[in-house]
Nucleic acid binder design. Structure first.
Lengths: 221, 221
DNA sequence: GGAAGGACTTGACGGCGGTCAAGGCAAGCA
DNA sequence: TGCTTGCCTTGACCGCCGTCAAGTCCTTCC
């Protein structure tokens, strides 16, 4: 269990002694694809580390549609921030694919943070990173055109490198579209236009970026 | 100086001993309206507590327009999250009105967090709150219509109460519009429509919500 | 008082993207 | 092979919002 916990940046560099009480209190969780983990408003009694699969964090709008806030992938943690406050979950969560996770009780992490400065610093760093990512997201969301959003999204996956690069989309296109605040139809049209312009190519569920430079140009309008 | 620091939730409940090294290293800063505090990419050597006035955090899009990420008001802190990571500021900041702040060196807060569990917990709570607010923002930004955005924005200022309530807009309407990802014209039109419907009234730069219930209805479409 | 400038409002128009609908395409199954 | 189901694509249409422009109100300053 300790070895599994160390997958998360949160727990890397902690001593075995530090990790032991957390490992003892945690348990493995398995979920079928599509299964609900919790809904908005549920008491936040635990947080999660994803070992395998991916999770959709979303909110329901008042007219019943869902807005994807974040997609959590293998190796990432989620809901750490709520585990520290005595507040209910601010989002719903459900499994995109078959899921393997570790559930860590909020009480244990709260107690450990109080004793263990190292862990507290790790958590601060992790939350700070999340704040940064949200700042990026808010910026991206308020960028005007659909093309810019998509270009920005793809660019976030690329290395600095200039050559052809391959992107594995997390789950379905419709979900990525939702993540970007777009309709599936619009997303499809944007991809089509990019293909016409020779910026990308598609090959068995992967997007191949032929010209990162052009992509950057599209984002910058 | 210690008394001033205690304005922020971050420093409430700390002992005088805890606060002293922070107070000694910090200094007061005054700014004229419109002045730049830092720009995106600057090294984050300090963070700020606003004593008086308000601050605009924004990003420049590639075509030169600016997108407001957050408006910081009296009594709030900003850039705490970056002070902990060794990363540059992810946004630009400039004074909206004449400004009075305390600048706190990143080094000092980093050192204190390592020694002082209480402060670490406060910072964790503060960051968690910020994450929550961003989740709300992302949700609000992706809500479709301008009317829903404005209604949601106003509702965030109201108490549970049902009666008439008064909202003091932070700075100008144009800035609030930018915050919501709207043009000033659109914002003005939405306000006009709400006035026609008897949902709000305006009175010397204040918005008076006549019918919170109707506002909620508008947000929920 | 009069000019100047800024904040806000109002109107007209056009484009982007959401919505609805139909069709293509692959996988699974009898 | 034919049917079904789910995911994606493509087309047509329309409404919202951004843009441009003009006009109003208020403050400031000479």
């Amino acid at each position: 269990m300790e070895q599994l916990l160390r997958i998360a940046p949160l727990f890397q560099g902690l001593t075995q002694n530090d990790l032991l009480p957390i490992a003892n209190a945690s348990r493995k969780v398995f979920c079928a694809a599509g299964q609900q983990l919790f809904i908005e408003g549920d008491p936040a009694i635990q947080f999660f580390l994803v070992l395998k699969g991916s999770v959709r964090l979303y909110r329901l709008t008042h007219d019943g549609k869902e807005k994807v806030i974040e997609i959590i992938r293998t190796g990432e943690t989620f809901a750490e921030s709520v585990a520290l406050l005595d507040r209910p979950y601010p989002v719903c969560a459900s499994a995109i694919e078959t899921l393997e996770m570790i559930a860590i009780p909020a009480e244990v992490i709260k107690a450990q943070v109080k004793q263990n400065t190292g862990l507290a610093l790790k958590m601060l760093a992790s939350l700070s990173m999340r704040v940064h990512r949200f700042v990026n997201d808010i910026h991206a969301l308020s960028m005007s055109t659909a093309q810019q959003k998509v270009a920005g999204y793809f660019l976030a996956f690329l290395s600095e490198d200039m050559g052809e690069q391959c992107i594995q989309l997390p789950s379905t296109k419709a979900l990525v579209a939702a993540r970007l605040g777009l309709q599936p139809e619009t997303f499809s049209r944007v991809l089509g236009r990019m293909k016409d312009q020779g910026v990308i190519r598609e090959e068995n569920a992967q997007v191949i970026v032929l010209a990162p430079e052009k992509l950057r140009q599209l984002r910058d309008e």
